[in-house]
């Protein structure tokens, strides 16, 4: 690898993608994008206690249960991934 390669846009992007989960790329599918957004949202709900309580009141569940449900939903936030079209 040449020294200049480290600074070109692609390697910078790769670095970002490795470091920050959810950094997009040109071939990002709609599904992948949504999954990221959903996971970010759930993480934000879990992190902000007042918001978690707000959901807990709406669903009449305990806050602990609500947090667990959100964690569980992070596995498949948007259902199953679509069939991949072979290139």
């Amino acid at each position: 690898m040449q020294a200049s390669d480290r600074f070109n846009i692609n390697s910078q992007l790769e670095h970002l993608q490795a470091k920050y989960v959810g950094t997009g790329h040109a071939d990002l599918s709609r599904f992948e994008w949504t999954v990221n957004i959903q996971r970010d949202s759930y993480a934000s709900y879990i992190g902000h206690y007042p918001m978690l309580s707000y959901f807990a009141i709406a669903e009449n569940e305990s806050i602990g249960r609500e947090r667990y449900n959100f964690m569980q939903k992070m596995l498949l936030p948007c259902g199953l991934p679509p069939e991949r079209e072979d290139e």
């Binding site: 920050y20 989960v21 959810g22 996971r39 970010d40 759930y42 993480a43 934000s44 879990i46 992190g47 902000h48 964690m71 992070m74």
Partner: peptide
């Protein structure tokens, strides 16, 4: 900010007080 991969959601300490682990929801 409360982010998915930035630690702060969980804090755990070694019972003998020698180390502390701080974790995020993910990664």
């Amino acid at each position: 900010g409360c982010r998915r991969i930035v630690p702060g959601q969980y804090v755990a300490v070694d019972p003998k007080g020698r180390a502390v682990m701080i974790g995020a929801c993910e990664k």
